[in-house]
Amino acid sequence: MKKLIIYTLIFISATKAFAQKDAQAKIILNQVSQKYKQYAVIKSDFTFTIDAPQASVKQTQNGTLITQSKTNKFKITLFSAAGSKADIEQEIISDGKTQWTYLKKDKEVQVSDADHSSESFSPAQLFTMYEHGYKYIYTGEQRISGKIYQTIDLTPEDDDKKQFFKIRLQIDKVSKQIYTALIFDKNGNKYTYTLRSFIASPQVPDNTFIFDTKAHPGVEVVDLR
């Protein structure tokens, strides 16, 4: 059985951090969360980069996130590193209760219960994750390609359970949208999500958040529940 590739990318390790929450950071994060919650569904194209110096690994993949905030439903599609949107490598789909991890190359889909714990992290949590289990501090502004981004560092309140020690968010000062999320690994690795687009209330089919086995003939179903 193949490992869940997405978890290899996004589950990391922890240490101590800030002692309190920052009022300025909270104001900015609330603005991001409130804007996100205005929409029934959002869609975002993103780039994911893993930089692991000790392993001499630096890899970039493109992906698409579709999420429905009120129901905890989401669909994450990752494309092959050198490919286009036609070259799907992996999909992670959740209807809020069940999660499917589809590994296209291996012709396998792994079925598990949806993980709502604060110990995990995925791109679908970017917009609201600070609301529970994090301390945060505003560290200033940065100008990139003519735009001003506000930088906020998040650190887990429960260091023993979290698998990462810091997440650095860059937020567009004007649009109040997250631009990047940089995740710091205790071992010196860095994982970066860059959101390249933000589409509010896109039209998506009803079956977007369910994996259709009939549409994937020959795929082995591995039930991990």
Rank of each mutant, 00 (worst) to 15 (best):
Q150Y: 02
L126Y: 00
G83H: 04
K105T: 10
Q110A: 11
I10S: 14
R196H: 09
P217E: 06
V221C: 01
E131K: 14
Q24S: 05
D223C: 02
R225Y: 11
D206I: 12
P123W: 09
K21Q: 10
Y102F: 14
A40V: 11
S84Q: 13
K97S: 13
A25P: 01
D172K: 11
Y179F: 12
D159N: 02
I28P: 00
A82S: 07
Q142L: 10
W100L: 07
S13Y: 05
D87G: 00
E91T: 06
D22K: 06
F46L: 11
F209Y: 14
R168Q: 12
L9P: 05
S33C: 03
P217D: 05
F184H: 15
I171N: 05
D115V: 08
E141D: 14
I27H: 06
G146C: 10
K37N: 15
T194V: 15
I66T: 07
Y193A: 06
T128M: 02
L4E: 15
P53G: 04
F48R: 05
L169M: 15
D212Q: 13
F79G: 00
W100A: 02
I28Y: 04
K176D: 12
S44H: 09
Y149M: 15
T67A: 07
K105V: 10
H132G: 02
I66W: 08
F74K: 00
A200V: 03
E119M: 09
M1Q: 08
I199L: 15
Q163Y: 08
E131T: 09
D160E: 04
G63T: 04
K35F: 02
K135A: 04
H216S: 14
L126A: 11
H116W: 01
